[in-house]
Amino acid sequence: MNPFNYSAEQLQAAALDVRRDIITMLVEAKSGHTGGPLSCTDFATALSFRYLNHKPSEPHWTDRDFLFYSIGHVTPVNYSLLAECGYFPLKDLMTFRKLNSRLQGHPHRLDTPGIEISSGSLGQGLSIACGVAKGSKIDKHPRRVFCIMGDGELQEGSCWEAVMFAGHYHLDNLGVIVDYNKRQIDGEVPKIMDVAPLADKWRAFNWQVLEIDGNDMQQILAAYDEMLRHRDRPMVIIAHTTMGKGVSFMEGKAEWHGKPPTMEQGEQALQELGTTYAEWSSRLLAG
């Protein structure tokens, strides 16, 4: 059971708060990744607040579901959701990327409650998720394993070793969400190194495939419901998203992959998200 079990409306409100957190913590850190966290926000929020079986007060609870962010660089969305769920105080978000912070630029398992594995080198998360899924099968444990991957990340050959493994072992307790925002650092994914046709590739490795608009909460909920119903093979949700979603001047722009907004840009972004830096940073600092 998810401890929150939010409705679609509540999830939309939570996703808005997460976007505000992301912008605010990045402005404060003056460093970090903006575009990917914003494209992942909707489906990641739905996982944490409706589907993932977890206990924020007990991060190592043995019966929990596992969630891996294979794209380690999306820490702003990962940390925001952990804090919003109550794994650690919201005010910690304002220490992101600073010396001696428990919130490292890329996630560190030994520092942060709720981080299952240290990451930041692409193309390793799905293999780890496969290991947890296989181990759970051996134990006949009913837990689910989720893994969030990037489309650029899928250029790493190691990803496909894991995809083959999961298909081969019928890991139907494993679900992947691909953040298909079609952007990476150097530009547009189809121009840098095309990963299309994605659905056909996963199908060829014996996965069940769903394609959705990954920034549409109704479609996200329908896809997760299907994922949880479904049994016999692993399932991937190919989530077509927009890099920088929610902030007009960031949307679809690869240049926002790895830079933070300046204070001025942050104010503009937060205004679009219905708040101000002063208001949102004091909410975080008080939390």
Binding site: A29, R97, Q104, G105, H106, H108, S118, G120, S121
Partner: peptide, 8 residues
């Protein structure tokens, strides 16, 4: 390398 941290 700085703020990207240990991984980088």
């Amino acid at each position: 390398v700085g703020q990207d941290g240990a991984t980088h």
